[in-house]
């Protein structure tokens, strides 16, 4: 049975070893070089950028005291009077960056730097009657925002602040005929949204609603002969989608349904010899793909990396310190 497929070919001379020292240097340089074009152009997602960098470094065991005090100061200066956090000082608060800020602070064990009660109020103010969440006061709805809201509250130990039933029901209303999830009811299934929905249900301890078998099949169908995973049918493989799919499989206990060695080889091939990981071999690297590439390798059992928690995308020791136990289905 032979079939044509959208895929890539891994070059013969691609990297096969994990380049920890190189990635560490790449991330330190990225953060130091505040006048670089990349740095200046990404102000609008600064807190997320910081989160990707510190999580990647934490995974590699090279976070040490990486600008800790400065970073905590930045996070602090991003909190607004409505309790929410913005990507950078003076921008508007948004649920995406509120979660990033909280993830950064729990990594540094510095939650007291911000007003946590105000964050909880902010998250609750975005909760809608149908159980969905707005991203900000302008009213866009997305299952990503449900995860941001629920994960933020869980990290702050304030899940009691929202109605779990309606939140769950909204997520379930986004389930499609192929067993996957989209951004809103009836939006096409997309690996990133599948992760968001599964992680939300996991935190709320509601995974029993999911058809793990059907969804597991859709997810493992994402693996292509190159070993990489794509985010939707007929799309190219990508290191970040490899993470969204892989972690979704981990949450529903089906990680063993894909070929782990081939995926590992794909992610390693996405490394640049000068450090950093790209979406595909040979492409431009960035902190985002570097973090999710490493997170994927960690989930695949790479023993030079710390263990990642699939639900929160934080090092497992951080989640253990907070005594959180998100639901994971048995294999």
């Amino acid at each position: 049975m032979a079939y044509p497929l959208k895929d890539i070919q891994i070059p013969e001379d691609a990297n096969k070893e994990l380049l920890i020292a190189k990635h560490t240097k790449y991330l330190y340089d990225f953060a130091e070089n505040k006048d670089s074009f990349e740095y200046v152009m990404t102000e609008h997602l600064r807190l997320s950028g910081i989160f990707w960098s510190i999580t990647a470094l934490d995974l590699m065991g090279t976070l040490r005291d990486f600008n800790k005090e400065d970073i905590i100061e930045i996070v602090k200066s991003c909190q607004h009077s409505n309790g929410g956090l913005s990507a950078a000082p003076r921008l508007d608060s948004h649920i995406l960056y509120t979660l990033s800020g909280v993830q950064i602070l729990v990594t540094f064990d510095a939650l007291n730097a911000i007003n946590a009660d105000a964050v909880v109020d902010y998250v609750c103010s975005l909760h809608q009657k149908d159980g969905s969440f707005f991203g900000d006061k302008w009213g866009e709805v997305d299952t990503r925002f449900s995860l941001c809201a629920v994960a933020t509250l869980a990290l702050l130990k304030r899940l009691d602040a929202i109605d779990i039933e309606s939140t769950t029901n909204y997520i379930l209303s986004c389930m499609n005929f192929d067993g996957g999830f989209g951004r809103r009811p009836h939006s096409e299934t997309h690996a990133g949204q599948v992760y968001c929905c599964l992680a939300t249900l996991s935190i709320l301890n509601q995974l029993h609603h999911v058809n793990a078998e059907q969804l597991g099949w859709w997810l493992c169908e994402r693996q292509l002969p190159s070993g990489g995973l794509n985010g939707r049918p007929e799309k190219l493989p990508d290191a970040c989608y490899s993470w969204w799919v892989l972690t979704s499989l981990a949450i529903i206990g089906k990680l063993h349904w894909i070929d782990k060695d081939k995926l590992s080889a794909f992610i390693l091939a996405c490394q640049d010899s000068d450090g950093g990981i790209a979406d595909r071999p040979g492409d431009e690297v960035d902190p985002y793909h570097t973090n999710f590439g490493l997170a994927g390798l960690s989930l695949l059992g790479e023993n030079r990396l710390k263990k990642i928690n699939p639900v929160f995308c934080l090092c497992q020791d951080v989640i253990d310190r907070l005594k959180l136990k998100p639901q994971i289905l048995d294999p």
Partner: peptide, 30 residues
Amino acid sequence: LDIETDKDSVINIAYSETFRDCYGYLRAVL
């Protein structure tokens, strides 16, 4: 208002001056 960086540094990318300029004023009006 400048982004939270060193004040007197120069970016060597052609169109970044426009970028830096308008976002400096955006921060001010925000």
